[in-house]
Design a protein around this nucleic acid. Structure first.
Lengths: 154, 154
DNA sequence: CCGTTTAATATGAAATTTCATATAAAGCGG
DNA sequence: CCGCTTTATATGAAATTTCATATTAAACGG
């Protein structure tokens, strides 16, 4: 009398809808790590920027926005805040004055390195909760899904 | 000179970080469907509420918030807006005056049924882009991951 | 070199989201 | 029944996010 989901969350449409599963797994997994990041004073959007810059310092705003999964105008504001906090600096691209290249400061680099290491450890803990078989399959499948989705978006 | 990700997005840490893959697959897949939903005048949070109520009408605010992956206070406001638009109604629970049960109106029910059908079709198209093997594995793996994550959160 | 188009980033107002807290109803021990 | 604790939802101010548009630089055709 409470609907299908009251007794069994897997029943009904939502409980086995691919997009719900993806969103809720992503949310929960991220929430675990973001709780840790917040203790370092870093929120999700900022952590994403740090991680991207850790991979490749001096990225331009637009590319960071693509990787950090947010809109350009939002990223601009996040970079502003991070710059104000001394985690990154903005530099004009000498070759193309329209571009702004974002660089980690020494403090930003330390934080990024630390959090990236923590993220690897956290990922390992999550994968450990799966059978080795599944653990080995999940990333390749997600990459294929992503490739398929990018195609569709072209 | 542009960092690892410039030439190959899969290189570097981020490109094969589980939480990034999950988030970006979820984002992109959802974006595809949400573009459709928006054409019907429904945004992501509202669509999630509609889908939950389609599965089990008369859910309470707290449960809807859990399923729709958002905070209670946010859900309260979304239900307000949806009620103002005539998609749902609020009713006090006769047994427990603290609870608010949210019900679909006739218009809400039509919209929920339509969008849910569209969502099933969309999901099928996404899974079709994978090998049948992978397509068969993805949901079970996500469900196991979710189960593991829920455990950790207890 | 000029005018036009495109690309990269910034900005501001409006809307949403978060955070902390308020309200109000149950539940519970005595 | 009374006070105390817990549960469910609401509310309001502050912060963030979105959306549309502005700004500035490059690119390009003539």
């Amino acid at each position: 009398m409470d609907g299908p989901q009251a007794s069994d969350p897997e029943a009904g449409f939502v409980g086995s809808y691919l997009l719900y599963l993806l969103a809720s797994v992503s949310e929960r997994a991220s929430a675990e790590f973001h709780a840790h990041a917040r203790n370092q004073g870093v929120r999700m959007p900022e952590w994403r920027v740090l991680a991207c810059l850790h991979d490749g310092d001096g990225a331009m705003i637009t590319r960071l926005a693509q990787f950090a999964l947010m809109e350009q105008s939002r990223l601009t504001k996040i970079v502003d805040q991070m710059a104000a906090r001394g985690l990154v600096t903005r530099r004009a691209d000498p070759r193309d004055g329209r571009r702004v290249r974002v660089h980690l400061t020494a403090a930003g680099r330390r934080l990024a390195a630390q959090l990236t290491a923590d993220a690897r450890a956290h990922e390992a803990r999550i994968l450990d909760r799966l059978d080795p078989d599944d653990a080995a399959r999940i990333k390749p499948i997600l990459k294929k899904l992503l490739a398929g989705l990018k195609e569709g978006a072209e």
